[in-house]
Design a protein around this nucleic acid. Structure first.
Lengths: 340, 340
DNA sequence: TTTTTAATTGTTCTCGTGCACAATTTGTTT
DNA sequence: AAACAAATTGTGCACGAGAACAATTAAAAA
C-alpha cells in the first residue's frame, strides 16, 4: 500500500485526462475545468503523489550561484572551520549545478558593508551570510528582500529580517548550560566572573544572550553566589583582572578568546574555566587542564547545513525550516577529539 | 577553469566521434579502435569530466531494497529512536527508489538468527544490521559476503567481518569520558562502582570496552580510588546493591538501564550517577537531579546515517567510509532538550 | 570479386517532469 | 447557422546518461 511510485502519466490514465491537465492541476497554472480538476485531485489524494525530484531537477537543470559572505578566515580558525563545512557541501552539490562565490570581509563593519554589497551586485540565486555586525545588516537585508534573493544566516541570528533559515545555537540556553556546569564544578563560597572579549559589543546581541542565560540559571535555582560581569575590547585589557581574580571560583568566557585567560591565571590554578569553541589554542589548554570545559558551536555544521539547505531549496524546491538549532555540545579533554 | 560542466555530447563533439563511442570509452565496454579511444581519453583528461549523477540515476532508475535487521522496538525507546532515524532516511530516499524491509527480532539470539536469515532469503540489494549478538553474527555475515550483499552495522561493531560502514561510538573513549566526568564530580575519598545490566554479557563486547576505558582513565591519571564492577542480568538483582552503596561516591552505568538505580538510592542522594541514553525514564531522572550526566549514543543518527550511506551508495555509487564515529555527547539537564 | 563474418561506429529510445505549442471543444457574436 | 473568440485539453520535445539496436566499415573466407 502506497509503496509504489506513481508518475504524472499514471495519474493522467487513472483520471482519464492528459498529462498536461495533471500538470496544470498540480502546479495550478493555466485553466482547467472544474470537472477535470476534481477527478485529478481525487486521484492525487488517493495515491499520495510525490513528484520524482530527480526527473524534476534534471529538467529544470540550470546552474545556481550562491554568494557566501563570511569573515575572512585566513587567520581565524573558527571561521576556517565554518568555511570547511561550506567547502564540503560545495563539493557535494557541485554536480547538481551549485556554484559558490565567496566574499570574505576583513573584520570591520565597513568592509562587511562593502563585500556584502558586492555580493548583492552579483545577483546570486541565494546567499549565505554570517551577519556579525548587527547594526549594519538591516539595510543590506532589505535590499535582498527587494531583489527576492533567499538567504540563510549562520552564527548570528537577526530576528527582524525575513531570512530563510537561521543555523546556529540558542544562545540563552547556551549560557544556562555553562551555568549548570559551572555550578557543578566550582565551589559555592567564592564569586563567579562572566567575561566578554569583543570589540563591537553593541553588535553582539548573542553574547548578551549568553550572559542572560547564565544568570538566569543561578536565579532559577536560588543560588546567591555573586556574579560579576566584565567586558574587554582588547586582549591587553585583561591585565585588569589581576585585582579581580582573588576570591574567584570560576570564569565563564562568552567568546572563543577563552585561551587569553591562561596568561593571567598562573597563581590561580584552581579557578574553573568554561568557554567557547574548539580553536587550537583552546583545545590545547583544554588538554592541559587550563580550561575545564568548552562549548562547541559546530562551525562546520553551520557552514555545511547553511549551504545544503539552500541547495536543496534551489535544486529540489524542498521546504526548509525557519530555524535549525545546533546542539549545545559540551566538550572536555576526553571527548574533544570526536568534535575536531 | 573547470567550472563548466560537460556532457557526453560535448565530449563527442570535441573528439569528433559519436556519443556511443564516448560511452564505450568511459565504461570500457564494447569495442573501440585505439585511435578513437585515444582521442576521447585526451578530451576526458583535459576537461576532467564528471557525469551528471541526476541524469544517470534517472535513467538507471531501478528500485533498491534494503533489509533492516534491528531489535523489536515496540517497547524499547532506544531502538525506537533508531528506527525513527531509519524512517526519516527512508522517507527522504523513497523518491529515489529506495525501499526498506524491516526484520525486527525479539531479543533472543535464536530470533536474531531467524530474522536475519529471513532477510537474507529476500535477497536485498543491501542490509542495515544491529548485530547485538556477537557470537551468532559471524556465520550470518559470511553468508552476506558470499552473496555480495553490502551491509552496514550500527551500534555494535564487529571487527572481523567485511562490513561496508560501521556507524556508532568508540566505546573505549566513551568509558574514558565517563571517567573524566566522574572524577570531576565525585569526591575522591570513596569508592566508584561500574555496573552492567545486561542479559547476554558474553555478546556485549562494547560494554566491556566502556569498562576498560573507564578504568584506563583512572590509571592514566594515577588516581587510586577503588573501582568495583558489578554485573546484573535482571533488574531485580539490583537489590544486592543495598550492602554496597554505603561509602560510594559515584556510579557509572554502562547501559540505558541507568534509571533502575533510582529506586535503590533513596538514602544515598549525593552519589553521582553517570549513565547512557536519552530514554524517557533517564531524561526525567536527569531533570530531577537523580541522574547527573547521560552520554548520548545518537540512535537517531545511527539509523539515519546507516540508511543514508547505503542509499547514496546504491543510487549514486558514492564511496563510503569504513567507520563513521558519532560524537560522544555529554548531556546534562540544561542541554538535554536539544538532543531530543 | 563476391560473400560472409567481425570490428567498429552511429542512432534511437527510455527514464519523469515541465513547459511550449498544437488541437479540440465550448461559448458568444453577427 | 456561420464565424470567431475563449476556454480547455492533448502532444511533443528537452534535460543527460545509458543501453539496445542499426548501420557502416574493415577484414577474412569462398
Amino acid at each position: 500500500m502506497g509503496k509504489e511510485r506513481y508518475t504524472i502519466r499514471d495519474i493522467a490514465d487513472m483520471a482519464n485526462v492528459s498529462r498536461g491537465t495533471v500538470d496544470r492541476v498540480i502546479h495550478n497554472r493555466g485553466t482547467v475545468s472544474e470537472e477535470a480538476a476534481k477527478k485529478v485531485q481525487e486521484v492525487l489524494e488517493k495515491i499520495n503523489y510525490e513528484p520524482n525530484l530527480i526527473a524534476r531537477s534534471l529538467k529544470a537543470h540550470k546552474d545556481h550561484v550562491i554568494a557566501v559572505v563570511i569573515p575572512d578566515y585566513s587567520d581565524d580558525y573558527y571561521w576556517r572551520q565554518c568555511a570547511n563545512g561550506i567547502h564540503r557541501s560545495e563539493k557535494e552539490f557541485r554536480q547538481f549545478g551549485i556554484f559558490l562565490q565567496y566574499f570574505e570581509y576583513s573584520k570591520t563593519p565597513e568592509d562587511y558593508n562593502e563585500k556584502f554589497s558586492q555580493a548583492i551586485a552579483l545577483d546570486p540565486d541565494a546567499m549565505l551570510i554570517a551577519p556579525v555586525y548587527y547594526q549594519d545588516s538591516l539595510e543590506l537585508f532589505h535590499r535582498l528582500e527587494e531583489k527576492r534573493i533567499p538567504y540563510n544566516l549562520i552564527n548570528t541570528p537577526i530576528e527582524e529580517v525575513a531570512y530563510h533559515t537561521f543555523i546556529g545555537q540558542d544562545y540563552r540556553k547556551s549560557g544556562r548550560v555553562a551555568a549548570q556546569l559551572m555550578n557543578a564544578l566550582a565551589p559555592h563560597d567564592k564569586k563567579i566572573l562572566v567575561i566578554h572579549v569583543e570589540q563591537h559589543l553593541e553588535n553582539s546581541t548573542h553574547l548578551h544572550e549568553k550572559e542572560q542565560g547564565f544568570k538566569e540559571f543561578y536565579n532559577d535555582h536560588n543560588i546567591t553566589q555573586p556574579i560579576e560581569v566584565f567586558t574587554f575590547k582588547e586582549a591587553q585589557q585583561l591585565n585588569d583582572l589581576r585585582t579581580v581574580l582573588p576570591g574567584t571560583a570560576g570564569i565563564f568566557m562568552t567568546t572563543s578568546k577563552t585561551y587569553l585567560l591562561a596568561d593571567h591565571m598562573r597563581e590561580h590554578e584552581n579557578i574553573k574555566v568554561i568557554g567557547y569553541d574548539l580553536i587550537p589554542k583552546n583545545v590545547q589548554q583544554l588538554k592541559e587542564g587550563k580550561i575545564d570545559i568548552l562549548i562547541h558551536q559546530n562551525p562546520i555544521s553551520q557552514g555545511y547545513d547553511g549551504i545544503s539547505l539552500l541547495s536543496d531549496y534551489l535544486i529540489y524546491k524542498k521546504e526548509v525550516p525557519k530555524v535549525k538549532l545546533l546542539p549545545l555540545d559540551i566538550v572536555v579533554s576526553e571527548n574533544v577529539d570526536c568534535y575536531l
